[in-house]
């Protein structure tokens, strides 16, 4: 069963998947890690992105990546609306943590069921020229449907990192949960900063969703698997650290890929949640945490 080829292929596939995981996790890294907003509905927005890409591909023949990019403003607007509701319902009253969590749990459920109503339980996939193609480097096969998401994921990671560290708004976002008082003194409205950051986090879901449906077929409840994954990544990566998120994504991708290759794919979901449980119990600050 065990062979070097298999091992190498599993590792490379894991790294590629890891790049994609980063794209999915960045949103939570921002909302949960930086803003203290427990948006467990994030994976549901990712799936929404997948179905958007699917619909645009199916009816207009749009490329999924193009759709993902085109729809970021729409998702951004969606993020603004969700944050508004969250702010009015919870944050303003200082009841954000637990009731807010339940709120997002409800949102997750609503998105999932709505997709179920619209598209049913069947797996949906996408048609694009490059989906089935691959090339080889030595014994290692690299599929375009994995390579592209990884590259796009890396690009989004770099872009977000630059935005957060180089721009005024980015630095304000980093400061908002620690020091909203200081921001106020500088004449910046912390609520506005949080709104921008949260909307941005949802906007990344549009792209991540397009990537998801490139990688493989999608059905409405698949988002749940990603809850464990993204939270494992964000906690492992040290809450809100963009580079930590990327590193944790790649680690998780490789571990999952190895598990799927050598123990069977049915064990893969347990990997991320298992890692998450262990990390939470042993080192809540994460591997790369403060």
């Amino acid at each position: 069963m065990f062979s070097l080829d298999l091992l190498l292929n599993a590792i490379v596939a894991g790294i590629l998947i890891g790049g994609f995981y980063a794209a999915v996790s960045l949103g939570i890294s921002v909302s949960f890690g930086l803003l203290d907003i427990v948006n467990i509905a994030h994976p549901a927005f990712v799936i929404l992105g997948s179905y958007t890409a699917y619909a645009m591909n199916r009816f207009f023949g749009f490329d999924p990546l193009l759709t993902g990019l085109l729809f970021t403003p729409v998702f951004y607007a969606l993020g603004v609306v969700v944050y508004r509701l969250y702010y009015l319902g919870f944050e303003r009253k200082g009841e954000e943590s637990l009731r807010g969590l339940v709120f997002f749990f409800g949102v997750l459920f609503i998105v999932e069921v709505a997709l179920l109503l619209a598209y049913g339980v069947d797996y949906r996939m996408i048609e694009a020229r490059y989906v089935g193609q691959s090339f080889h480097i030595g014994v290692v096969g690299i599929a375009f449907r994995l390579l592209l998401p990884c590259l796009v994921g890396l690009m989004v990671t770099v872009a977000l990192h630059l935005f957060l560290s180089k721009t005024f708004y980015g630095r304000a976002i980093k400061a908002v949960s620690q020091d909203s008082q200081a921001l106020r003194l500088m004449g910046v409205d912390p609520v506005k900063i949080k709104r921008i950051a949260f909307a941005l986090s949802i906007a990344t879901a549009s792209l991540a969703g397009a990537l998801l449906i490139l990688i493989g077929p999608v059905e409405p409840s698949i988002g749940r698997e990603y809850i464990g994954r993204v939270f494992a990544i964000v906690v492992l990566g040290g809450m809100g650290s963009i580079s930590g998120t990327l590193a944790a994504s790649v680690i998780l991708g490789v571990v999952e890929s190895l598990t799927a290759t050598f123990s069977g794919p049915s064990w893969a979901p347990a990997v991320s949640f298992g890692i998450l449980l262990v990390v939470l119990a042993v080192r809540p600050a994460g591997l790369f945490g403060r």
Partner: peptide, 12 residues
């Protein structure tokens, strides 16, 4: 989140 994780691990 840990309780959710527990649920998925058990299911697996």
């Amino acid at each position: 989140i840990a309780t959710l994780a527990l649920s998925v691990v058990l299911q697996t």
